[in-house]
């Protein structure tokens, strides 16, 4: 199990837009350059890349939650 950390402090979003489904669902295949979420930092949205390969095992950080740099955002098996 690998945890994907937040690259920056900010607000974490699991979805590309409020009316859309999350980037990943449990069991989805994950490639290193797949986007698993967004971090909003100072009014800029930064894509969070998985940087690992495997199978998506769920989000750790809640949608729209404040996060610190290094906080675990999601799990990959």
């Amino acid at each position: 199990m690998t945890e994907i950390p937040s690259p920056l402090p900010g607000t974490f979003y699991q979805k590309p837009a409020p009316d859309q489904p999350p980037f990943k669902a449990t069991g989805d295949a994950v490639a290193a350059d797949d986007t698993i979420g967004l971090v909003e930092v100072m009014k800029t949205f930064i894509e969070v890349k998985a940087e690992v390969t495997g199978s998506f095992a769920g989000y750790i950080a809640e949608d729209a939650a404040p996060v610190q740099a290094g906080d675990p955002l999601a799990k990959v098996k």
Partner: peptide
């Protein structure tokens, strides 16, 4: 010095 800049507002 020592101020933690919050990430929620503009830069």
């Amino acid at each position: 010095e020592g101020y933690q800049i919050p990430p929620f507002y503009d830069s």
